[in-house]
Design a protein around this nucleic acid. Structure first.
Lengths: 143, 143
DNA sequence: ATATTTAAAGATATTTTTGTCTTTATTTAA
DNA sequence: TTAAATAAAGACAAAAATATCTTTAAATAT
């Protein structure tokens, strides 16, 4: 479904969003440890999220990462789009270049319904809600 | 969503299923050309489908591949399972090992609905129905 | 100013996936 | 019984994804 990079990205964003509002920024090491991901690889992914303005970063002592803007307005769809691109939203399930409503691949209509379901879910699932459930101990970031 | 190998597999199965019932078997070259896939790589994939008893193969002149059993009873789910395994049906969206109803990852419930939709669709979509639509010119295997 | 802490950038390495090539085995037909 | 046609198997190659390492840049605190 998602690349590993994308899974790390979602996990990392949820972790950062779950931290107390007025707390310190989260450093790379802290994030990688929290989500059980390889540190250097995670750094690359965070850089991409910063480039796409989903995270802010600061160098130096007490530097680190924080959510850019309101976690309420950041969706899973944005994170996925940043790391995996939008083929998952728009691409043909069978990989055909010219698959469309007018010229559908053999599974086009069946998959369209699933894809629309997936897309809708991702667009309407925001970081704040997810982070709240993590903080309430209702869901978990590892193990 | 699916690996390229899996996409080739689905396409190939649909192509073979779309051939006339009493016709010749389809050879590797014919299949690869029909679905626009690399020949040698396609060969590996077809071998796997034969191992998993979704296809029959025969060597020698007039050899080739044919659907094993009734195309009515072969589902997309079986083809996907043969090539990509069943992580797409059962795996955690965020890649967590211990994600379950009792110990859900942060997006577990949201994704469960989508995954169940996907799984149900794949389980209820059989080759015969798809092949029929290809034969009727309602859907297309390439371009 | 300098040392320390941190992220960014870029080079490199490893693993997985995708793809190819060569050889072997089997079947058919002449 | 030999030649041709085909898939199977296995070795190899290329590309992409994942992961690491090294150097640089920026910020802070002393």
């Amino acid at each position: 479904m998602f690349s590993k990079a994308c899974k790390y990205a979602i996990n990392a964003m949820i972790y950062v969003a779950s931290l107390p509002e007025n707390g310190q920024r989260a450093g790379l090491k802290e994030i990688a440890k929290a989500i059980n991901s390889p540190e250097a690889f995670t750094a690359k992914i965070l850089q991409q999220l910063v480039r796409d303005e989903l995270l802010n970063s600061a160098k130096g002592p007490h530097g680190g990462f924080e959510i850019q803007g309101n976690p309420n307005t950041i969706t899973i769809a944005q994170i996925v789009g940043s790391i995996d691109g939008d083929m998952i939203f728009t691409g043909c399930a069978l990989g055909l270049e010219k698959c469309s409503e007018d010229h559908p691949c053999p599974v086009h209509h069946k998959f369209k319904a699933v894809r629309d379901h997936l897309t809708g879910m991702m667009l309407t699932t925001n970081l704040k809600d997810i982070a709240t459930r993590v903080n309430d101990g209702i869901s978990f970031l590892k193990y």
